[in-house]
Each structure stands twice: as structure tokens, then as C-alpha cells.
Design a protein around this nucleic acid. Structure first.
Lengths: 218, 218, 218, 218
DNA sequence: GGTTAAGCGAGACGGTACGTCGCGTCTTAGA
DNA sequence: TCTAAGACGCGACGTACCGTCTCGCTTAACC
């Protein structure tokens, strides 16, 4: 993100960045988007609401969507639990439940929709969003599939496809309706993605399936 | 959409709408977005490129995304085949193949991404897009699931969830990467959504399924 | 100036320039500079006061000083009388009297000082000011010296030097004090610049000159 | 000016002002204005060029024009010789020659024009400029007229008018053209302002003139 | 010789205006 | 009545300097 000081050695002279101001701007952006919507969110409005100057906003963020992305991580608990629940089905179910619940936290869904939208429209932000948000959540899911694979209870579906199905369904749930639906297909998705059809088709067939899948999505 | 003549009785006086101008505007929008991207697409630019006036554009469309939505249906074949291929698996596979192929037609993916993005940002266009585009494709898929249900080979998954999985995966495939991926999980998705665990399909059935898939997507 | 249509043949399509808006902007600029001073005069403020948009101001003038220059010719009578008063001394005296009086018209002096100042600071405006203002007044004076030369009563001083002396004294009178002085050296300047040492003007001529001056500036 | 220590008793503790820094800032301002012009001269730029901080500039000068005014007295020899040349005509001629020559020293004219311009625009600087620059030069000329009066060879023109004519002509020469003219009316001006017309009109007329002049410009 | 008070470079900050851009509306003249 | 042209009010853009304010450091004069 924009604010990590990273490996700045020592030679910091001059006035320090005001943490107070940073929080004021993030809060202003988060509240403003909830009140007027992303299309009416402006840097000008954020600065005015935060009692800061536009210059200060631009000094630290290059785009209103970047402000919002950082505001999200300050305002909402984005950590996805990757606790071991003992089985792939339980892990996946918890992951889905957490994800859908995040989308129902007041104020979060509009921000997520706006960020995904902006990622389509602004190529630069698109990259930052994919690397700073989407990739992190994919990595969290990968932790679960890796553990399940080690444990041996991952169904014979390509982990990449599992991720595409899981995140695809979640994002479609967010993006394709006007209002966020009240229900979420957590259980049905878990059932579908944890069914182990080894009782039905012979294992030799399944191996054959895997080979094909591997070819199609390496 | 905006341009359907619908039930126009007769009493149209004055100069008629220029079909030539309409196509010029749609073409200009479609080319412009391919060249400079949606964020740099403006009504002003469309009008200039089409040799028309802004007024004329605004008379027929209320938003640049609406121009693009109509341009898409003029420029790309959006009809999804709902031909009966004999089985749910074959129908689904064809539907997926058609859908992913549409996304790979040059120029289409950026437009689809832009439209979905605008639908998040502009509430009015969001409604038009959902009703005029998303709902139509959902209806096309519903034709397949209804047929499969009548035929009896629909796996015991809620048709709504099937649609969410199918479209979620397709849209995530479009939205979550910078470039459109070269491969698409057509076969794996078909396999997952046509497996019938309760029926315990013998290995012979599974082989049959796989054979069909192989034929449909060589 | 900026607004002269010059040699525009005929093909004027589109909405015409609003004369009402033009006057509103000129008036706003003229009033604003009188109230807050030139350094606090901004295009933004002019537009706001005129109820116009900045864009409209910038469409027709490139600089706030250009607005003021045009406002001056609308608000103040800039025509310098070049009427023939019968003698060089009478002509010059009338010219000086008119010029100093213009500087005492409320609101004019601050504008003139600002324009001369801006002409020093902005090279582009400097050229427009010299050609559109200074040169015109020099031409007016040249009319008088030409006439005097033809008449034969021009003292043997280079007309260019006469102009430099006349305008130099007037501008210094405007620029070198905080407040515009109440008195002006009209008579003394006239005397100095109409004395003909060689011709040795008889006292009767001089008395006649003085009489005129006395009448003209009571 | 800003830097005069004036009546500072003694109790100066802490680090002393860096003379090196002062010269660096004055030099930076002087060079910068020559390169980019006064309108593009900024405190920010001066500080950057001088390798100082804005704070340091603001600590000692309140306006960029004040920096320039002090820079002028460091960079150019502003002393006007008031040496006694034996006669009013010779004194005046030397004064004019020196003055016009100063305006032709490379870099000086643009600075003088800028200072006079700023004096019109910024009231505070206007006062400082008039008192710290214009008044001093008027005083220098007054030395000459006083001496001539004592000597008895001052022509019967009000000394104040002489000053207005001399400085008016010099400033107009600086301000009214784009480029500084190559020639200066030194001789013609000297001739005009040292001619003693007592040979021509009768003394009684001239006395009359003087009376009137006295009334007009007390 | 430690204390204390500037001076100084750096640079973040709240402001204000800049000049530009695109919006969506409007007023023309011509087809 | 539609069209191209284009002026208009509007509002945000991203930038530039303004003048102020910490910072951490340096440099003297004083105790």
C-alpha cells in the first residue's frame, strides 16, 4: 500500500506525517461513499470533509479508490480466518461464512463493488487492487486447500478451479444484484466442493479426470 | 433499450432519425473504447468521432455505457445458442464454450468489464444492465436447466445456484485478471455441474459423460 | 481586443455569444477590482460575481488583465479629444487636462496602474497593452503634434520626446504615489512644451495662451 | 529595509544569521528573475536555488519583491553620483546619463520594471519601494536642484516638476516598451530643462507663469 | 562546559486559485 | 423536427505556491 515506510534507513528530516490527518481522510472517504455513493465521491469532497487540503490527499494516494482501499483495511476487519477446523469441509464452510459475512457488514459491500469496478476502469488501480486485495484472499484460500491436500481430504478438483468457483460466486453475489442478497449459498457451495465421488466412480476414472483437468488448467 | 421503436403508431412528423448517424455513433463508441479505454471514453469524444453533435447522442442515450451496451449488440453476436444437444452436460458445455468464446472476441471483454463496472457505479445504468443483459443470459441458462429438469438429467443442485456458479465463474474470469486468460475451465465446470453423486453413476456412465465432453470441445 | 469578429465571413453556426454575459463579466471585474484590489482579483471571483463559469471567462479572455482592459473601455470614456483648439498650446493643454481627468475618474486610476503593472510582469499582456492602449494614446497625441507642425507652432522639440515627456509625466503621476495627487501640472507642462525660445513669442501670444488655459481649467 | 539591524541593543543569543545564506538567496533571486521572469519567480524557487529552506527566506523578507529590491542593491551599483560638475546643466546631464546607464546594465531593467509593477499591486511593498527607492533617488536629484538654486542657474521651473519630468521620462522609457531602447534622450532633456527663456519672453510674463505654477503645484 | 536560544534545511500541512476537462442544457442555422 | 455547431453554467480535476508549522540538527553566546 501507499503508507508502508518500508526500508527507510534513518535520514527522516522535516515534519512527520500526521497520523491524525491520515485517519481523518480515510474516515471521511469511508463515510462519504456510504452517504453519496462512489460516483459522487470526490477527492475534493474527501479533503473538505477531512478538514485537509487536496494536496495532502494527493501526496499520499493517487486515486480515490486507493483511499477507499486503505480505508477498508482500517475500517473493516479484513483478516480471513484460516484456522484449522479439522477438515476441508469445515475449513471451506468457515471461509465462505466469513466472506459472505464481510459483504454484509454495513458499508463494506458498496466499497467492494466500487473497488472492483474501478479496477476495471483504471488499469493502474486494477493492478494495485489485484495484488493488494484479490491475491491476498486467494492466498488465504490456498492455505486451506494446501492443508486439505496434505490431509488428504481435498476432493479431486483443481485448487485453481476451486478458487475461481469460490471467489467467482462470492463476487457475482456482490456485483450482479442491486441489493446484497440476504442469503448466501454457503452450505450448498461447501457440499458441492467437498463431495468426494470416490464411492461412485472407480478411482481409476477419477485419476483420468484429474489428468484432463490438469491439462486444461495448468 | 433506448432505441427500440416499439409501438410507435404513425404520427411522426419532422425529420426522421438518421439510422446512418446511429450506427456512426455506436461504431465510434466501440472503436474509441478499444483505443483509449473506458475511462477515457467521453460523450464528447464519441460525438466528435462520429461527426455528430453531443446533442444527438444525448437525445438517444442517457449514458456512455448505454451507447456501449447497444454498440455491443450491434458489433458482437450476443445470441447464446440454446440448441438441444441431447443432454444437460452437452447443453451446459456448449453454453460455457459459447460464453467464454464471446469473451475472447477481440474488443468484447473490455466492453463487458466496463459495463459491469459502470453498473456498480451508476445505479440507473446498473438496473438497465441487469435487466437488459444479465437477466437475458440467466434466462438462456434457465432454458437449459428447465429442459434438463424435464429430461431428468439435472443433478440435484438448485438451478439458481448453478446459474450463480456458472456466471460467477465466467465473470470472475473476466474481471479478476489484467488480461483475459487464454484457457477456460469449460470441461471441469461441466464435469462438476453434471456429476450425479446420489444416483451413483457407474463408471460406464461417467465414461459416457466424458466422451460427450470430449466430442463437444475438441 | 479579443472580441472583434473581424473578417468572419458568414458561416456562423451554433449558439451566439451572449452579450449579456460579456457585460456581466466586465462589470464584475471592474467592480471587484475596485473593492478588493488587483492582487485579490481572480478569474474565479470574476466568474462567480458575474454568475458565469470560469470556462466562459477563459473562452474570451486569456488573462484577468485583458478582462480589465476591455472593461475599462466599456466603463470609462477613453476617447481623447483631438479637437482643434486653434493652437498647439491649447491642444496640448486640453489633451493633458483630459488625460489627468481620466485618472481622477473614480475607479480608473487603480485599473490603469494594475494594467501597466501587469504589462511588466506578463510579456504577452504587455504586448497587447502597448498595442491596444499605449500606442493608441500616443497616436492621439501625434495627431496634435502633426497638426501643430503643419500649423507651424510646434516648438523645436522632437515630437517623440514630447510624447515621452507628456506620457512619462502622466504615468509617473499615476504610479509613483500611493494616492493619486489632487493636482496635476497641466499648465506648467503646457508652458514648458509650448515655449518657442527661437521665435520669441510676444507677450500678446502668451497672454492669449494663458487665457485659454485659465478658462479650460478653473 | 528588512535587514537593517537598527537599534538592536546587544542581547542576541543563539546562532547568528548566516551572511553566506543571505547572499545565496539574493543571488538566487537575481539570477532566477533574469532566467524565467518575475511572474515565474517564486519564494519556493528562490529557496530551492539558494539551497535554503522557504522558512529562512520568510524569516528575513516578507515578499519576493523585497528580496529582489535588496538583491538589486547588492548586485548593482545604485549610487547616483551627485558630484558637482560646475553647472546645473552638467549636473543634470550626468544624473540622466547615470540613470539611463543603470537601466542598461544587464539584468537591472527587468528587476526595476518588476519592482515598480509590484509596487502597484501590493500596497505594502508599494510603500517600502517608494520610501526605500523612489524617495532616495528624488532626494539625490533634489541635491542637484538645491545646489543649482543656490548657484542661481536653475531655470524658473518648479523643482518638483523637474523631478516629475526627469523621473517620469526615465520610468516611461523603462516601462512603455518591450525592450529597453538603445538610445536615451539625455541631451534633449538636459537642453529642455536647462534652457533659460529669460531672453525671449519678458520677465514679467515669466514671473506670472511662476506664480501660477506655484499655485498649481505647491 | 553545559545550557539555552536562535538559525537552518527539510518537508508536511491547510489553503486558494490556477487553467483544463467533460458534463448536460441551451440556442442557433441549415437540411 | 432532426441535425451539426458551439456557447453556456457547472463542478471536479490535478497542480502550483502560498505562508505556517513541526522536526532534527547546528552554532553561538551566556551562565
Amino acid at each position: 500500500m501507499t503508507t508502508e515506510p518500508a526500508a527507510e534507513p534513518a535520514a527522516r528530516r522535516g515534519r512527520k506525517r500526521s497520523e491524525e490527518g491520515r485517519i481523518a481522510i480515510l474516515t471521511a472517504a469511508y463515510e462519504q461513499v456510504a452517504e453519496v455513493g462512489y460516483h459522487a465521491l470526490t477527492i475534493e469532497g474527501i479533503a473538505a470533509r477531512a478538514g485537509s487540503s487536496k494536496r495532502t490527499v494527493y501526496r499520499w494516494w493517487s486515486h480515490k479508490a486507493d483511499v477507499l482501499l486503505e480505508a477498508l483495511s482500517v475500517k473493516a476487519e479484513l483478516r480471513i480466518s484460516t484456522t484449522d477446523h479439522g477438515s476441508w469441509a469445515a475449513d471451506l464452510s468457515a471461509f465462505l461464512r466469513d466472506s459472505y459475512e464481510l459483504g454484509r457488514v454495513p458499508g463494506v459491500a458498496p466499497v467492494l463493488r466500487a473497488l472492483m469496478a474501478e479496477a476495471q476502469i483504471d488499469p493502474g488501480f486494477g493492478q494495485r487492487f489485484r495484488e493488494g486485495f484479490l491475491a491476498r484472499r486467494r492466498a488465504a484460500l490456498a492455505t486451506l486447500t494446501d492443508r486439505a491436500a496434505r490431509r488428504g481430504d481435498l476432493p479431486p478438483i483443481d485448487p485453481g478451479l476451486i478458487a475461481d468457483l469460490v471467489f467467482g460466486t462470492i463476487w457475482y453475489w456482490l456485483l450482479a444484484r442491486d441489493e446484497i442478497p440476504a442469503d448466501a449459498p454457503t452450505d450448498a457451495l461447501t457440499a458441492l466442493l467437498s463431495a468426494r465421488p470416490e464411492a461412485n466412480p472407480g478411482p481409476e476414472n477419477r485419476d483420468q479426470d484429474r489428468d484432463q483437468d490438469d491439462k486444461e488448467q495448468p
